[in-house]
């Protein structure tokens, strides 16, 4: 059995979380409220070092990059939400963040999720001589079209469109099944790891 107090704390808190599997109880509640508190405290400290010190204080104090004052001012506008008269100013920081995100996303989305996928779909090895690869590529090609038709909103799912959309659903269901089955292993190994922690590191029952 471990003699390290920290291991004991970690083990007891782990059990507290697991107690929820039986039912909600006071021990779980304590762990939950503690976890929420600690996790915010952690973020505050990390933000203090990584943002306040590294991105605000150091650039201004050491590198004399006074441009940094602009985002600080923009960020401060956020507090205007508590004022009735100047409340609209609080929309400025969010506008900056959202506009920035949208602008960065548009070209990148085209590049990574449209062009790249289209290119990979049409790269069918017709003359590669490997029948298996060819068949696989054709299965992918048909699946991409069928799935995309399912998400076509301008016509109801009737007639030919309906049939193709239905094929799309089959593809989607197989994909979901596969992805569910694929994830099972990873999720179970999470508990294996925790069980080894409890039984080996803490109780020393297994060697």
């Amino acid at each position: 059995m471990s003699t390290n107090i920290w291991i004991w704390i970690a083990a007891l808190l782990t059990l507290a979380i697991y107690s929820f599997l039986y039912k909600d109880n006071i021990v779980y509640k304590i762990a939950e409220y503690l976890l929420v508190g600690v996790s915010i405290g952690y973020s505050i400290a990390i933000t203090w070092y990584n943002v306040v010190i590294a991105k605000m204080v150091v650039p201004i104090r050491d590198q004399h990059n006074f441009l940094i004052i602009i985002p600080i001012l923009i960020g401060m506008f956020m507090f205007a939400r508590f004022s009735k008269k100047h409340g609209w100013l609080s929309k400025i920081p969010i506008s900056f963040v959202i506009g920035w995100g949208a602008g960065v996303a548009i070209p990148l989305q085209f590049e990574t999720s449209i062009v790249e996928h289209v290119k990979n779909t049409i790269a069918i090895p017709w003359f590669g001589g490997n029948i298996l690869l060819l068949v696989n590529a054709i299965i992918i090609f048909i699946g991409v079209i069928a799935t995309l038709i399912y998400f076509y909103f301008s016509t109801p799912h009737k007639g030919v469109i309906g049939k193709v959309a239905n094929l799309g659903i089959w593809y989607i269901m197989i994909a979901f099944g596969a992805s569910f089955g694929y994830t099972v292993m990873a999720r179970i190994s999470l508990f294996i790891d925790r069980a080894q922690f409890l039984l080996h590191d803490w109780l020393g029952l297994i060697h």
Binding site: M185, I188, S189, I192, Q196, H200
Partner: peptide
């Protein structure tokens, strides 16, 4: 200890 082999049995 063969941690992974044991883990794999559990798996």
């Amino acid at each position: 200890r063969s941690m992974a082999t044991i883990g794999m049995n559990s798996q």
